[in-house]
Simulated assay, not measured.
Amino acid sequence: MTKEALFPSPAWPSVPVKGENAAYPVHRIFCVGRNYAAHAAEMGVEVDREAPFYFTKSALTTQATDTTIAYPPGTENFHYEMELTIFIGKPVFRADPATAAAAIYGYACGLDMTRRDLQLAARAKQRPWDLGKDVEQSAVFAGITKAEAFGEVGPQRIHLEVNGDVKQDAHLSDLIWKVDEIVGDLSHYYHLAPGDVIMTGTPAGVGAVVAGDVITGGIDGLDPVKLTVGAAE
């Protein structure tokens, strides 16, 4: 018998879908590390071409586009990362690339906001990145475009601006691990299902923001994402 909860439990956060009245609930967020060679180089690391690697964010870090978040505690080096985000639409487990591609419901622009100083300190000590990556309000998503409406992933430009100045500018063809490869590989470790979200990595050009900065980002064919960084609490 299910017992009454000790305290109110929030509903799953959700992301709107273009052309739908219903929204997409976010249950888990997986993130791909070092998936653009130029970004890996600027971070001073080699690209692992044997397999993708992952870290996670809590679903409760989900934040809507065009909002303001507080500058987070514990950091003096808060970074933006612009990313193509995958939303899973059907159960998939131990999939080949074709089956993995068919499980993709849609795509959206996303921001993986990062306490870079804490991430690098953890990396130097070979510790998990949780304090650097699993940051409150740090997974910012624009509305979802369904996969069939977006088309083949590859030629689209991906870019980010801070206060109107271009900071990141690349193409999705620069992804080391393509979307079907990512979903297929991850499905060998997890039973992926609707509600699972995968952020595919960021191009070169990451950098710090301060209170008052406005971040805008886009990918050809997707709704843009926007975030304002507010004062620290």
Rank of each mutant, 00 (worst) to 15 (best):
Met1Thr: 11
Met1Trp: 10
Leu6Ala: 13
Ser9Met: 14
Trp12Leu: 15
Pro16Ala: 14
Gly19Ile: 05
Glu20Val: 05
Glu20Ile: 05
Glu20Ser: 13
Ala22Trp: 06
Cys31Gly: 14
Cys31Lys: 11
Gly33Asn: 11
Arg34Ser: 14
Arg34Trp: 13
Asn35Pro: 14
Tyr36His: 14
Ala37Trp: 10
Ala37Leu: 14
Met43Lys: 11
Gly44His: 10
Val45Gly: 09
Glu46Lys: 15
Arg49Met: 09
Pro52Lys: 12
Phe55Trp: 13
Thr56Glu: 02
Lys57Ala: 02
Leu60Ile: 08
Thr65Leu: 10
Thr65Trp: 10
Asp66Glu: 15
Asp66Ala: 15
Ile69Thr: 14
Ala70Leu: 09
Phe78Ser: 00
His79Tyr: 12
His79Met: 07
Tyr80Trp: 14
Glu83Tyr: 09
Leu84Thr: 11
Thr85Met: 12
Ile86Leu: 11
Ile86Gly: 04
Phe87Thr: 10
Ile88Ala: 04
Ile88Phe: 03
Ile88Lys: 07
Gly89Leu: 09
Val92Ala: 08
Ala95Leu: 04
Asp96Lys: 13
Pro97Thr: 12
Pro97Leu: 11
Pro97Phe: 09
Thr99Asp: 15
Thr99Phe: 08
Ala102Val: 03
Ala103Ser: 14
Gly106Ala: 04
Tyr107Asp: 04
Gly110Phe: 06
Leu111Met: 14
Asp112Thr: 00
Met113Phe: 00
Arg115Met: 06
Arg115Asn: 11
Asp117His: 03
Gln119Cys: 01
Leu120Ala: 10
Ala122Trp: 01
Arg123His: 02
Arg123Thr: 01
Gln126Tyr: 15
Gln126Trp: 15
Gln126Val: 08
Pro128Trp: 04
Trp129Ser: 01
Asp134Tyr: 01
Glu136Arg: 15
Val140Leu: 10
Gly143Met: 08
Gly143Leu: 09
Ile144Gly: 10
Thr145Pro: 04
Thr145Gln: 07
Thr145Ser: 09
Lys146Trp: 01
Glu148Asp: 15
Gly154Asp: 03
His159Ile: 06
Glu161Leu: 04
Val162Glu: 02
Asn163Arg: 02
Asp165His: 07
Val166Cys: 09
His171Asp: 07
Ser173Asn: 07
Asp174Met: 06
Val179Lys: 01
Glu181Lys: 13
Ile182Asn: 01
Ile182Lys: 08
Ile182Ser: 02
Ile182Phe: 04
Val183Gln: 02
Gly184Asn: 00
Asp185Ser: 06
Asp185Trp: 04
Asp185Lys: 09
Leu186Ser: 00
Tyr189Phe: 07
Tyr190Ala: 06
His191Asn: 09
Leu192Met: 05
Ala193Val: 03
Pro194Val: 00
Pro194Tyr: 06
Gly195Val: 04
Asp196Trp: 04
Asp196Asn: 07
Asp196Thr: 01
Met199Cys: 13
Thr202Asn: 06
Gly205Thr: 00
Gly205Pro: 05
Val210Gly: 03
Gly217Met: 11
Gly218Asp: 08
Gly218Leu: 03
Gly218Tyr: 02
Gly221Glu: 08
Leu222Ser: 04
Leu222Gln: 06
Pro224Gln: 12
Lys226Ser: 15
Gly230Glu: 01
Ala231Pro: 07
Ala232Glu: 06
